[in-house]
Design a protein around this nucleic acid. Sequence first.
DNA 1: GCCATATAGGACCGAAGCGGTCCTCTTTAA
DNA 2: TTAAAGAGGACCGCTTCGGTCCTATATGGC
Lengths: 155, 155
Amino acid sequence: MLRISKLADYGTIVLTAMAREPAWTFSAAELALRTGLPAPSVSKILKILLRQGIVVSLRGANGGYRLARSPAEISTVQILNALDGPLGVTECSASPGLCKREAHCGTRAHWHMINRVVLQALEHITLQQMIDPGRPRLDVLRPAWRAARSAEVSP
Amino acid sequence: MLRISKLADYGTIVLTAMAREPAWTFSAAELALRTGLPAPSVSKILKILLRQGIVVSLRGANGGYRLARSPAEISTVQILNALDGPLGVTECSASPGLCKREAHCGTRAHWHMINRVVLQALEHITLQQMIDPGRPRLDVLRPAWRAARSAEVSP
DNA sequence: GCCATATAGGACCGAAGCGGTCCTCTTTAA
DNA sequence: TTAAAGAGGACCGCTTCGGTCCTATATGGC
């Protein structure tokens, strides 16, 4: 486990396809064709992304979808949040207050720390990075690391 | 999502309880009592951890479970692997070769990078760290960061 | 030698989540 | 007016997971 859902996985594939031509308006059918994903699923994903403000739509003939922002302004954490709901390594990371054990749970703080690191990492990986050619570099996570550290000092 | 299973969550709670007295042999019932978790679940978890070599058992009267190694030698990644199976942020991170899209999937390399960071982080957070008093420090993840970076240079 | 205690292993079940499909309604360009 | 395309939701089947229980086996104490 510790896995994202299939929907979120598909979502990033669809969005990276769109990010390669940010100005273009894609129909759901065309995106399904380009990505090789099942058309109904692609359609479903786009509708969710629309409601979350990640894509915009044009209805009617010759309609379709476009990215709502530039690829550099769409991070993976936004995509996962949209398609998988609030993400947290443990339940108490995602929705604090739900677990009764919280008060005297020794592991909680550590899961929160791990969660913060993961979140910051996802925050700094954008669609732009995803479509940049060449091997991905861990260096893009440096700001994430710094952000997580400063969050630690002043919570 | 991007969440660990409840079983794995419970597992870390049980193991941290054991880690506070590493020499002691706990019966499953006693651990259930100490942690406040349902006894059948605790028993099930311990049986899995036994098969994975994380705890050792003593059968018969006055029997019970003990950590197989020192708390400093048991990392969270071992616990999650034991209780949740091989972990990967995406399916292709956990079991490469299963996804047909791999060859021409532009997002895969990035998920692998994220996965590597998460894995290394979990690798460096041990039961010892979990029971150390005081707020957890991100500094414990420094070696994880370095390890992930060196893995990038020589895959 | 017997019995109480504890683990070992697996079977079993109910609930929930999720992936996937389909249908109907609305909008808009030609 | 019609065809194309999105909007929204209903629906269903499968899988997975959490949880429980039962039986067999081992061992220490009497």
